[in-house]
Amino acid sequence: MHEMGIAMQVAEIVRSSIPPDMTDARVERINLRVGRLAAIVPSSLRFCFEVIAKDTPFSDAVLNIEEVPVVAKCNDCQHEWTIEGPAFSCTACKSGSIVIMSGRELEIASIEIAD
């Protein structure tokens, strides 16, 4: 639902990541990392980004989205596991005191510029 705003932020970061001395740079690929818990629908993000990227150095760029699994760690027994469904208790000792180690990412890892 807020994918348009997210796409605008992505465009902003990509724009500022192109080295200023590279005039006529064409961005081929944008590598994003999106956690499985992040409130983002990849297909909507792609659609919004296409709209925003029109007439920019990244208009043909592929938005490559790497989905990051939700990994949790138990504060009580240190057990680490991947959360698949909406259940957030330790799978080893049932403790509810856990930390989410990954799965909330919404970040640009890198951009790839045509040679």
């Binding site: 997210i6 932020q9 990541s17 080295p19 890892a109 890198s110 951009i111 510029i113």
Partner: peptide, 13 residues
């Protein structure tokens, strides 16, 4: 050429 960015999309917010 790959350029490392590593920035949170919601950095500004």
């Amino acid at each position: 050429m790959e350029i490392k960015v590593v920035r949170k999309v919601l950095d500004a917010n």
